[in-house]
Design a binder for these strands. Sequence first.
DNA 1: CGGCACGTTGAAGTGACTCAATTCGCGTGG
DNA 2: CCACGCGAATTGAGTCACTTCAACGTGCCG
Lengths: 252, 252
Amino acid sequence: MAKKNAHPTSAQALDLLVETLARHSTLSVADERAMRRLHPRVREVEKGTDILRQGDRPHIAVMVISGMLARYHTIPNGNRQYLSLHIAGDLPDLQSLFLGMMDHSLCSMDEAQIASFRHTEILALVKRAPSAGLALWRHTLIDGAIFRQAITSNGGRSAVARVAHLFCEQFTRARAVGSMSGWSCPFPLSQTQIGQLVGLSLPTVHRATQLLRKQKCAEVRGGELRILNWRRLGRQAGFDPLYLHADLGERS
Amino acid sequence: MAKKNAHPTSAQALDLLVETLARHSTLSVADERAMRRLHPRVREVEKGTDILRQGDRPHIAVMVISGMLARYHTIPNGNRQYLSLHIAGDLPDLQSLFLGMMDHSLCSMDEAQIASFRHTEILALVKRAPSAGLALWRHTLIDGAIFRQAITSNGGRSAVARVAHLFCEQFTRARAVGSMSGWSCPFPLSQTQIGQLVGLSLPTVHRATQLLRKQKCAEVRGGELRILNWRRLGRQAGFDPLYLHADLGERS
DNA sequence: CGGCACGTTGAAGTGACTCAATTCGCGTGG
DNA sequence: CCACGCGAATTGAGTCACTTCAACGTGCCG
C-alpha cells in the first residue's frame, strides 16, 4: 500500500469516508453528493496523544485517515483497559453523536492522520440523506459486534488464544481496507499495550507471542504484524470472521 | 413483584417501546404516532428457549416486555459466553436490522414475554419518522457502551469486582425501568450462568457471591438480587454508572 | 420417595501474576 | 565514534487467584 500523502486534503478524507461506507452499505448518488458537502478538518497527531478523554462532551466525530487510534477505559486503580483498535476509515467515536458524554478515552497508538466532522454537520447530513445515516448506523453496529468478540475473548479464551485472536482480527480488518502488504499489516502496539488490550500481564503476552512465533503462526516485528500460517493461527484463536460483517465478497 | 398481565396486547408493547425510547430521546407527537402504527407480535417463551441462533438471518427484531433475555456466543469448544442481559424495554437484536447474519444467539433466562417487530416495518418507520430512527440508533449505542464495560470487567477486574459490577449494573438498569421493589430486582441466573457471563468458574462465582453476602453488600436469593449496601457494593465493583447514559439523575 | 438441579465446600493443580534482573535496539550526547 | 540512557523485549523465580475435579447438602417437583 503506497504511503498516504503527507497532508491529506479534506476531499481525500471524504473519499475515504465514502469508500468505507460503500464497503458495507449501498449509497445512492444523492447520498454520496450529500456526504461530499461535509467539511472535515484534517490534522495529524503524535503517537500517544489523547484525542478525547473520558468525561468529555465532544462536538465532533473523528475518522482515522492513516495510523492507528484506540479507545480505552481508565480503571479506578489507574490501570488502562484498551477496548478497540481503529484503522483507516474507522469512526471510533461516532457514538458521541448521541451519547453526550464520553464513557471512555480515544488516543493514538501511532503517528496518525485524522479528520474531524462537526456533529451538527453529520446530523444535517443524516437529515438530508437518510440512507447515508443508515450506513453510519450500520458502522456503529459492526463496532458493537467487535466489542462482543472482545468480551468473549477476555472472558473465555486462554492467553494464547486471546493474542492469536487479536492478530486474526487485526489482519482481517487491515486487509479489508487494503492496509496490508502480502501477509503483513501495521501493528504499532508494545507488548504492554497488547496486555492492556486482551487482559493479560506483560510476561504472559510475551510468552504467548513467543509461542505463536515458534509455531510459525505469526510474529510482530518493527511495528508490523506478519502472518506466517493463517490457518494454524486461526485454529489457535478459534477465529471466525463472520462477526466482522466484512461481506467477504470484497469488490474488486 | 407484581406479575405483568398474562397476555399483553400489542398496544401495551407499543406503550413500552415509546416509554423506553422517551427515556433517553425526545420524541415528537408524529414520531409517537408513527411508532404506534407498528404491528408487533406478542408471545411468551419458556425459560431457556433460544429465540435466535448464531448464523440465523432474522427478519424480525425483538423487544423484551417482561422477564429476562440474554445474548451469548458459542465458543468452538462448546462452551457458552453470555454477552449481555436484557430486561423490559430492551431491543436485544436490533442490530440484525442491518447486520444480516446473527453473530451470536439470543435466549430467555426466564419465562419471558416478548414482542417481535418486522424489519420491514421498522425500516418503514425509520423512513417515515426519522427522529424515531435516531432514538433507535441511540438505543443501540447505549448497548455498545454496556459492551465496553463488559470488556473492561472481563479483562481487568478481580473475581469479586466482576460479580459486584454485574450486580450494580443490573440493579441500576432495573431501577431505570422501574422493575424493582425497594432494594431488590429480578435476577434469575444460576451461579453457573453468572460464571459464563463474567468469565469465571462456578466455585469462584460462589465464593465471590458468598463474600459479598458476608460483607452485607448484596445477595441473590430466590431469583432476586437484593442490595444490602449500595455504596460498599459500588466500591467493590469500581462502579461508575456514567456509561449507562441513563441520565435520570435520580440518586437516593 | 426418589430424582434432579443447583448451591456449597474441600483439595489439588496450574496458568497467570508480580517482582526482578538481564538483554537488546536505538537514539543522543559527549 | 563510542558511551550512555531509555524503552522495550526477554527471561526466571516465587506466589496467588482461579480452575478442575470431586463430593456432599438441600430444596423442589413428579
